[in-house]
Amino acid sequence: MATEHTQTASEYVVHHLTHLNTSGERQQVVVDWGIINLDSMFWSIVLGALAVFLLWRAASKATAGVPGRFQCAVEMLVEMVADQAKGIVHSEESRRLVAPLALTVFVWIFFMNAMDLLPVDLLPVIWENIYSAAGGDPHHAYQRVVPTADLNITLGMAIAVLLLCLFYNVKIKGVQGWMHELFNAPFGSHPLLWPVNFAMQMVEFLAKTVSLGMRLFGNMYAGELIFILIAMLGGTATMLGFVGHVIAGSVWAIFHILIITLQAFIFMMLTLVYIGQAHDSH
């Protein structure tokens, strides 16, 4: 937040929605491959490392005897994912990769989404103090702490899923079998239908990937934005604004507990479903 002059509401929102990236400025063009969002990458890696570290701790102490509570919790998670994977991906060999991947997706996305439950100004203000203490301009101390509210993150994961789908298409059906499927499904094998089939398949892959990435991004972005708006309610420094902030913030946070879990679960399930579809021949 600004120290010299009072921020307008739109400045506050824009500041909160600007990434800390390698250019140091707000990204102006829609696509720029020369820029990396440092905040998203940092939190994504930290939370991913935390997620796999917790899972690894449970795994390294796992015994076949009576499990502790933590081990039990992780086992329930693993069993849930394993059951889902077994029902969707009908290949024992593929499951050895896909099931752990789905577990990673669920826990990691859950952790990244859960960053939304931290007060919207907590980490950005801490960063602002660090940044200005290091001699930076606090106006440019951007910090977004919810990685899944960054389209790059969600779309990156969706593209990773797409790559896996393509890999399994080739692995299970062979290049020839997959090509045959691309041109002969879903409408039929008549040569006149080949272009239509191919176009349809391309649209399908594109739609799957974009919707997978966009769904998570949209949910978390909207959630973050609403938290920012609720915080502005408290920012009016009036009694009404304060009470409204507490009530609306509590309600939205409680509702968001459902959203973050549900979105993590949906992403995991769709990952399994898409990879499972790559195993099915038409």
Binding site: V30, G34, I36, N37, L151, N152, I153, L155, G156, I159
Partner: peptide, 9 residues
């Protein structure tokens, strides 16, 4: 906006 974060992710 899209950028190299996607590849990093």
């Amino acid at each position: 906006n899209l950028n190299a974060t996607l590849v990093g992710q």
